[in-house]
Amino acid sequence: MSIWILLYGLTFYPILNDERPIPSHVLPKLIIILVLFYFNYFYLVPEYLLKKSVLIYLFVSIGLLIIAVAGLNHFYEPKLPEDFFLERQPPRGYGYMPIYRSFVNLGIPYIISAILRMYVEWKRNENLRLSVEKENIKSELQFLKAQLNPHFLFNSLNTIYALSVKKSPDTSDAIVDLSELMRYMIYEADKDLVPLNKELDYIKSYIQLQRLRLSDSENVSLKITGEDRGRAIPPLLFISFIENAFKYGTDYKGKTYVKITLIITDVSVYLNVRNKIGIFREPTKNSGIGLQNIRNQLKLIYPGLHNLEVENDGKDYEVSLIIYQKQAKL
């Protein structure tokens, strides 16, 4: 509406300012422009152009413009001075100039209306595509988390089972630790982001649970540096790397070597997990579920904002992950 007010204002202001009468062709021209603009915008473009009927759209559009120009020139017929032909010949094509100007004056708004409607439709489709893509990513993340939780529970129950077989007095403590871990997974893991300090507490509890089942945990360490308050991170992002380290980090003598380092900066979180590879450890069919799961999550959550490196020389297995956080603060 404001565009039309501006257009009409620019059209009528010079005339009214000079106290000249409004030419008879101006008002019909503006009315025809309005009719063509909105008819093209609301009907022709959606009905033909957006449905790929380009030839029909062109024929109809050209036909409408010809009819409109013919009607407009019925109101506007330029008159030559009486002595015009006595002194000189009229310029070539003079009789066609009003028709040419009418085509330009009507055609430009007509074309603008088509471009505007196509842009609006493109923008609407782009927003719809982004919305669907976001929903698909969210659904896929929910699927990945649902896949990860049973995997984690299976490994944790194996830990408690090992303690119960040995009739360890730590079995009850392990069950309490597992209940705390499960509480976190139930109430926090379905969120997009969780406080980083809660995620770190979860990791500490998991490591404590693992220590209870190990016969030798002297070489198990967790080192965290940096400020975690007010920071946020997707839940369960690191646990698969740590799970795999404990699963394969015990050598043939029963000693476990797992070193975990977390460095928190203002713009990133760095995780390094290193473990010895047990000589008699053979990869199982499902051993790569957790790692592949996290790779998929990283691609979905941090596209272009993470770097994951995995090194395996047959003796040591090391994972280095750095995340450049899109949302560093809660």
Rank of each mutant, 00 (worst) to 15 (best):
Y13W: 11
Y13N: 08
P21G: 06
I22S: 12
H25A: 10
L30S: 00
L30D: 02
I32M: 15
L36R: 02
Y41F: 15
Y41M: 09
V54I: 13
L58K: 02
A70E: 15
N73T: 00
K79T: 12
L80N: 06
E87R: 10
P90K: 00
M97E: 04
I99A: 15
R101E: 05
L106V: 03
M118L: 14
E121V: 03
E121Q: 15
L130P: 00
S131E: 09
S131H: 10
E135Q: 07
I137M: 12
E140L: 13
Q142D: 02
L153Y: 05
T171E: 10
D173A: 10
A174R: 02
D177I: 15
E180C: 10
L181W: 03
M185P: 08
E188L: 10
D192E: 15
E199L: 09
E218D: 05
E218I: 04
V220Q: 09
E227L: 13
A232T: 14
K247A: 04
K247N: 01
Y252V: 08
Y252S: 13
Y257W: 06
I260Q: 05
D266W: 04
V267P: 00
K276R: 11
K276N: 07
I277C: 00
F280E: 08
L291Y: 14
N293S: 06
R295I: 00
I301G: 01
I301T: 01
Y302F: 15
Y317L: 09
E318M: 12
V319L: 11
Y324E: 07
Q325C: 06
Q325T: 03
